[in-house]
Design a protein around this nucleic acid. Structure first.
Lengths: 167, 167
DNA sequence: GTTAGTGCAAACCTTTTGCAGCTCT
DNA sequence: AGAGCTGCAAAAGGTTTGCACTAAC
């Protein structure tokens, strides 16, 4: 089972593996995505309709505190919710397109350089590092020009109307 | 006045410089810190007791959308609030000590390397980049060991008591 | 059998919205 | 004069908490 690593880690900590936790762990681990609490709850509810939203929050908190999942903001692309992913062996940055919402992951060694420099320069002991980059993916850059044109047209139409009324 | 740069930028956009906004701008600009909305509100209220919390939120939103301030999470060190700082010319990372809450800023060129690589590798147009690193500052690393000892003692004391009752 | 974990309801905190009245330009 | 801004009250969205019951170990 994919989530056995997480389950082992929890067992070691003396955490009980309840039916609900097993279900949630499976979903988190197999999704391979950036789920927020509500999405996870909706997915889980399909398999266990009695499962409560609160249990999702409590489980996420548990995993987060145990360093088994990372919590992301994804540039607050959509509201203030948080997103979760199982902690990978390798640090990576998240790159969010502000137009289409697509998330890319960047694993470049440059991230290690930042990490190393922070450690040595400040004598800082790093527990986690999170890099989020917002902007426009190659696909949306072109579309954005069109968006702008449309917005400008809308604005002009509005102004014209305003002038008519003003006169 | 320190915030004249911001004020000019707003004026250009046709934004009205009301008494409230001038006050908030001054506070944001002169604090040189990472304020959250509530702190800013409390500070502002001292000078203008009638000023409303909502105005603070609206002003921050305005500045954020105009790219005049950056919004930070600071690793959600304390609740889900956001922190704000006037946008500096140079990108920098925020390094948060999870024990004492102190925030350091890191300006190393390594950040530019990440930025450059993301741009070229993904053809991504970067609007903003945010790096937050959580961990323990040099001062707290030592103290943390003591924290742990204390916690372990507490735990042991608790277990001993438990055993007595169990017998 | 114990203690940790669950569900439910209700609270919480931060932020946003609708609207009537005020004010900057 | 009039669009833009403010204050107030109320709601929203996401998350946490208190408590009695249930289930994992």
């Amino acid at each position: 089972m994919a989530s056995s690593g997480i389950q082992d880690s929890l067992r070691e900590r003396g955490v009980r593996l309840t039916r609900q936790r097993r279900l949630l762990l499976d979903l988190i681990d197999n999704s391979g995505l950036h789920l927020d609490a509500e999405s996870l709850y909706q997915m889980a509810k399909e398999k266990d309709p009695k499962l409560n939203r609160v249990t999702v929050y409590r489980t996420l908190k548990l995993l987060k505190e145990g360093g088994l999942v990372d919590e992301l903001d994804l540039a607050h692309f959509e509201g203030e919710k948080h997103y979760y992913e199982t902690r990978l062996k390798q640090e990576h940055a998240h790159i969010i397109c502000l137009r289409c919402g697509r998330v890319e992951e960047f694993f470049g060694e440059q991230l290690q350089a930042v990490r190393g420099q922070v450690q040595s320069q400040f004598g800082f002991e790093i527990a986690f590092a999170r890099t989020e980059i917002g902007g426009y993916c190659s696909h949306c850059q072109a579309l954005r020009a069109k968006d702008d044109l449309r917005a400008k047209d809308d604005l002009r139409a509005k102004e014209d109307q305003g002038e008519k009324q003003a006169v």
